[in-house]
Design a protein around this nucleic acid. Structure first.
Length: 573
RNA sequence: GGGUCGCUAACUCAAUGGUAGAGUAUCCGGCUUUUAACCGGCAAGUUCUGGGUUCGAAUCCCAGGCGACCCA
C-alpha cells in the first residue's frame, strides 16, 4: 500500500500557499464525510481555567466521572497510533485532550473511523469542540478523556513556530489576532485594559458624572495644540477636522447645566508615531462645575488609586525597574520649585527674558527659536531637566499662562494659571486646570492662537466663535481634567510601548509589491496587479507615465510617487 | 527629522567574496501515557527591491522599501 503512494508525483508541502491548499483539501474531505468544517454551534459547559482550578488536587491517574464539554483552538498535537494528546486553548487557558481510539470510536458510531479522521484531518490552529470526562494522566497532566469531538472551524494557515512563537514585533502588531492566539500575556493586557476603562467609568458614574458623547467630526479643531487630521464632507462641500480634544464641547455641556460630565473616547492627532504616541489614542476628559484644580487633583489621585487597586489588587505597580507607589499621598510641587531644585534657577527672580535666557543657557538648557518668554523658558527648563526625573506620582502645579490658553489665571500668582499635570515614570499622565470662564479673556487668548495659525503655526487653530458664545451665556466656575488612557494602561500593565496597549496600532502600510502591469493605450487605462492578488485599473493615465513605470529601476517607488492617489481607479479584484 | 542595527526556506537562525545549510513546522510511513513526544523518509530558496563593483555577491558599494532601538 505504501508502494502505491510512493509512485505518485513528489508532493511539495512547504510554502504557505501549499500548506493552505493541503488544508483546503482537508476541508473538502470533511465535507464529503458529512462534517461541516465551519460549524454553527457547540454547547460549552466549562472553560479550561475553571477545570484546572477545580481539579487541581486530583491525583495522577485518577478519573472523575463528570461529563464536560469545552471548545477552543488546538495549539499542539502529539499523535500516536491509537492514542493522541491535543492541547486545547480557550479564552481562559489551556487543557489537554486525551484522545483514545477505542473510546472515541465506541461513542461516535455515526461516523465510522472517527478517531482516524481526527488524526488525519485536524491541524494545530483548528477550532475543536470536545466532550468527555475528567482524567489526570499518569504523567500528571489534567485532561479531558474525550468521548466525542466536533471540528468547529478548519484553520487554513499555520500557527507560528511552536518553540519561538511569534517574535517578529512587526507581525505581532500587523496580525494582532495571531499575537493574541499564541501570546497569552497579550490577551491579559487587553483584558486589563477593558477592566481599567470599565473601572474608570464605574468610579465616575458612582459619583454622578454623566458620560456624554461629543462630535468627532468638527468644523474647527480646538481644545489643544496639535495638528489635526483633515477630511471632507462631500454633500456639505466642507472641510472637517477630526477632534484633537473633547474640551470645548464638554464645556458647552457645562454651560448647558450639566455639573459633572465626562467623555472617554478616541482623539486624533496628526503627529508622529513612537513608543509613546499613536495618531489615534484614547483620552478621558472630566469636567466638574463649582470646583477648582485642588478638587480635581484629589479626584484624579483617588480615581487612579481606586482603579489600580481594583485591577492589580494593590496600589503598588512594578514598571520596568521601578516600583511605583500609588498608595501614599502624592507629591505636589510648583513648576518653579521643581525647576529650582533640579537646575538651581529661580524663575521668580528673573526680571527680564534676556536675564532668564542667559542663566538658562548657562544651566545647559537648549532654547528653541519659538521660545520667546520667561514662561516658555520655564517650561523648556522643566521639560528638559525635570520631567524624566518624576518617577513616583507627582502633581506639578501653577503653569505659565503662555502655554495654557484655556486655564483660569492664578488667584494669587500673576503670570501663572491654576493648572496641574500629573507625572508618573517621567511621563505626563494627566492634565487639569481651573477652567477659564471669562469670555473676554478667552477671546483674546484664542485670537492670539488664530494669529499664530495665520503666521504658520500648524498646531494653532481658529477662534471657535460658538464656544465663545457659550461662554458669554455664562459658565460656572469649573475644573477640568484629561487623562491619557493609553499611558495609564501602559503603567498598569507594565508595557513600554503604546503599541502594546492598543490592539491595532497604526503602522506604515507595507510596500505596494506590484506583481505586474499592462496598459491600454486606446482607453488610457493602466491595469496593475499586486502581489496580494488585487487588481486595480487606473484611468486617464498618460502613456508617458506607463513608459516611465516600464523603464524605472524601482517599480514600487515610481508607483508610489507618480500613480498611487494621482489617478482615479476602480478595483477589478 | 537624525543616527545605529536588522531583513536568507513557512518559523528561528547559520554560511572568509567561491556548490546557500541546520533545527522546527509541513507532507509520507510507524507507534496506546505524550506535553519542544519519538523513529524513518520526502520536499522546501527571486538571500527585501533595483542598480553597481567583480571571473564570481547573501556577503562589498549606491539608492529605495519595511521594521526595531536611540536621539530631537
Amino acid at each position: 500500500m505504501a508502494s502505491d503512494r510512493s509512485q505518485k508525483e513528489p508532493q511539495h508541502h512547504s510554502t504557505l500557499e501549499e500548506i493552505r491548499s493541503t488544508r483546503l483539501e482537508k476541508v473538502e474531505q470533511l465535507k464529503k464525510l458529512g462534517l461541516n468544517p465551519y460549524a454553527y454551534k457547540w454547547e460549552i459547559t466549562h472553560h479550561a481555567a475553571e477545570l484546572q482550578e477545580k481539579y487541581a488536587a486530583l491525583a495522577d491517574g485518577e478519573e472523575v466521572d463528570i461529563e464536560v464539554s469545552i471548545a477552543g483552538r488546538i495549539l499542539a498535537r502529539r499523535v500516536f497510533g491509537k492514542l493522541a494528546f491535543f492541547n486545547l486553548q480557550d479564552e481562559t487557558g489551556t487543557i489537554q485532550l486525551y484522545l483514545e481510539k477505542k473510546k472515541i470510536d465506541a461513542n461516535m458510531t455515526d461516523l465510522s473511523g472517527a478517531f482516524n479522521h481526527l488524526k488525519k484531518l485536524t491541524d494545530a490552529g483548528d477550532l475543536l469542540g470536545a466532550k468527555g470526562t475528567i482524567k489526570r494522566t499518569e504523567k500528571g497532566e489534567l485532561s479531558i478523556y474525550v468521548s466525542e469531538y466536533g471540528i468547529l472551524t478548519k484553520s487554513l494557515l499555520p500557527l507560528p513556530d511552536k518553540w519561538h512563537g511569534l517574535t517578529d514585533v512587526e507581525k505581532r502588531y500587523r496580525q494582532r489576532y495571531v499575537d493574541l492566539i499564541v501570546n497569552p500575556q497579550v490577551r491579559e493586557t487587553f483584558r486589563r485594559r477593558a477592566q481599567i476603562t470599565a473601572g474608570i467609568r464605574r468610579y465616575l458614574e458612582n459619583r454622578d458624572f454623566l458620560e456624554i458623547e461629543t462630535p468627532v467630526l468638527q468644523s474647527e479643531a480646538g481644545g489643544a495644540e496639535a495638528r489635526p487630521f483633515i477630511t471632507y464632507h462631500n454633500t456639505l462641500e466642507m472641510d472637517l477636522y477630526l477632534r484633537i480634544a473633547t474640551e470645548l464641547h464638554l464645556k458647552r455641556l457645562v454651560v448647558g447645566g450639566f455639573e459633572k460630565v465626562f467623555e472617554l473616547g478616541r482623539i486624533f492627532r496628526n503627529e508622529g508615531v513612537s513608543t509613546k504616541h499613536n495618531p489615534e489614542f484614547t483620552m478621558i476628559e472630566v469636567y466638574q462645575a463649582y470646583g477648582d484644580y485642588q478638587d480635581m487633583m484629589a479626584l484624579t489621585e483617588d480615581l487612579i488609586k481606586t482603579v489600580a487597586k481594583e485591577v492589580i489588587g494593590e496600589a503598588k505597580v512594578t514598571y520596568g525597574e521601578e516600583i511605583i507607589d500609588l498608595e501614599t499621598s502624592w507629591r505636589q510641587e510648583t513648576m518653579h520649585d521643581l525647576v529650582k531644585e533640579k537646575t538651581g534657577l529661580d524663575f521668580n527672580e528673573f526680571k527680564t527674558f534676556e536675564a532668564a535666557k542667559t542663566a538658562s543657557v548657562e544651566a545647559g538648557i537648549e532654547i528653541p527659536d519659538d521660545c520667546q518668554s520667561i514662561g516658555k523658558l520655564l517650561n523648556e527648563a522643566f521639560e528638559q531637566k525635570v520631567e524624566e526625573t518624576l518617577i513616583q506620582p507627582t502633581f506639578v502645579i501653577d503653569y505659565p499662562i503662555e502655554i495654557s490658553p484655556l486655564a483660569k489665571p492664578h488667584r494669587s500668582k500673576p503670570g501663572l494659571v491654576e493648572r496641574f499635570e500629573l507625572f508618573i515614570v517621567g511621563r505626563e499622565t494627566a492634565n487639569g486646570f481651573s477652567e477659564l470662564t471669562d469670555p473676554i479673556d478667552q477671546r483674546q487668548r484664542l485670537e492670539a492662537q488664530a494669529a499664530a495659525k495665520a503666521a504658520g503655526n500648524l498646531e494653532a487653530h481658529n477662534v471657535d466663535e460658538d464656544f465663545l458664545a457659550a461662554l458669554e451665556y455664562g459658565m460656572p466656575p469649573t475644573v477640568g481634567l484629561g487623562i491619557g488612557i493609553d499611558r495609564l494602561i501602559m503603567l498598569l500593565t507594565n508595557s513600554d510601548s503604546i503599541r502594546d496597549v492598543i490592539a491595532f496600532p497604526l503602522l506604515k502600510s507595507q510596500s505596494a509589491a506590484i506583481k505586474s502591469f499592462d496598459y491600454d493605450s486606446g482607453n488610457k487605462i493602466l491595469r496593475v496587479e499586486f502581489n496580494n492578488g488585487s487588481i486595480y485599473k487606473y484611468h486617464e493615465v498618460p502613456e508617458s507615465v506607463y513608459k516611465g513605470l516600464k523603464e524605472t529601476p524601482s517599480v514600487g517607488q515610481y508607483f508610489n510617487d507618480r500613480i498611487r492617489d494621482k489617478f482615479g481607479f476602480d478595483r477589478e479584484v
